[in-house]
Design a protein around this nucleic acid. Structure first.
Lengths: 240, 240
DNA sequence: TGTACATCAGTGAACGCGCGTTCACTGATGTAC
DNA sequence: TGTACATCAGTGAACGCGCGTTCACTGATGTAC
């Protein structure tokens, strides 16, 4: 049975074509087979269906509490098929973290231009908000598991967020106002910016649509407040 | 069987005296019975044992994934005894949220004096750090379930944190630098301070002991950065 | 104080259910010639 | 192109287990007189 096969157990599931994936003309293009990767292609489709199914379940439950059988049921596949793709749920979880942090990494990169003028703050916040809207499932998963019940996932998320902060710390070092700031001072700023961005993202996920503008405006103000502080900061002098 | 009774299923459990709770002299103090509340007292002990057991399990797992039987096993009580105290796990969870937010409320109150001078920042951060250390289980639970898989808990936590922010927003309004700030501006500041405090708390919970000083110092710097921004903030002028 | 009855916190057996994992299997896809 | 064999993604039955909840119960605590 294919991921979208006729199992008929989960009531509403998006159907995808599981056969006839080759729509190009059948004229022999070359000597190699025209549809050579068919088996591995369909295996990959099932793998993606499992990941998508898990992500869907994770919008309502924490990783800790979803079962292998639930995931395969949602994916339209028998429980045993799972083991063709992952050793266990934990391995699937780590793949999800990687995928999701790809999203988060892009989001944080979009925040890089935050540290300049007021216009940029507003535009960057809008970019972050759009990104959040387009990657709700991944971001919700990250927010949920960042302090969730599965240690290995917490660790993986924590490590990646630290990398974002370090990256942003290097980046802000190029701004004129921050000449002469120590690495530590730049990390202080970077983590505050990242946390404020992440906080906006998770607030947007929790909120009703009509609350979004207020949340974005609040985040804009908070970033401006921080940036005003930056102009008065005396590197290394505040904590003597 | 009492919470600390001879069930003998969970291997290491702290034993508490379940009898002889009256240590005061037996001289008839009044006409009413000297140990009249014995039955309700021991019921309360079991209730507390269930809550404590749940909190202990929640240090390693999310609420979503712990079972009623696990909780009663940890509490040293039969599964059916649970229903003498709570309708279901969700009800127990809401009680835990209330208890834990009592802790968080005190913690945030300790942060109120943050908004003045550098000395106060350092002292307030230390107060928050001490508080975190003393209420690890409650704070971990809040951090985990704030964006966790159980909607009713998320809602309860979210609502209470919003109350903290509002409370702090009123409080900072009395500072000389904030005269003339609108309610919205004060809330912007208050939520930034609360989030920074909460973030420090959860970072401390995740970190090794030797990492704590660095986390506290970073938080001090972040709060100072924000407070520097406050002195340059022009109420209502930044978002025209 | 003593006795007879009521209350009720906690018990233990039983139930049907979904779980993770194993196993031998099926049949379409892929490959060698 | 055609045939014979190999590969392997996905299947379905089976297992033992822990789950939430029900039920009739026990016996210590509480109360009325």
């Amino acid at each position: 049975m294919s991921p979208s096969g006729s199992g008929g157990r989960s009531s509403t599931r998006s159907s995808r074509p599981s056969r006839s994936r080759r729509s190009s003309r059948s004229s022999s293009r070359s000597e190699s087979s025209e549809r050579a990767t068919s088996r591995s292609e369909s295996k990959e489709l099932t793998r993606q269906a499992l990941l998508r199914a898990a992500l869907k379940l994770l919008s309502r439950h924490s990783f800790d509490s979803i079962s292998l059988r639930e995931v395969t049921r949602e994916a339209g596949v028998s429980p045993t098929a799972f083991y063709r793709h992952f050793d266990d749920m934990e391995e699937l979880g780590l793949v999800l973290v990687e995928d999701a942090l790809g999203s988060l990494r892009q989001m944080i990169r979009a925040a890089r231009s935050v540290t300049d003028t007021q216009i940029n703050v507003r535009r960057s916040v809008q970019t972050l908000a759009d990104y959040t809207h387009d990657h709700q499932a991944h971001l919700r998963f990250i927010a949920r598991e960042r302090y969730g019940g599965v240690k290995v996932l917490r660790r993986a998320i924590r490590r990646e967020i630290q990398l974002f902060v370090d990256e942003l710390a290097v980046d802000v070092g190029q701004l004129p106002e921050l000449q002469g700031w120590s690495v530590d001072d730049r990390r202080v700023l970077a983590s505050l910016l990242v946390e404020t961005a992440v906080h906006m993202a998770v607030e947007l996920l929790e909120a009703r649509d009509d609350e979004h503008p207020a949340i974005q405006r609040r985040t804009e103000s908070q970033l401006l407040l921080v940036l005003l502080g930056v102009t008065r900061w005396q590197p290394g002098r505040h904590l003597d």
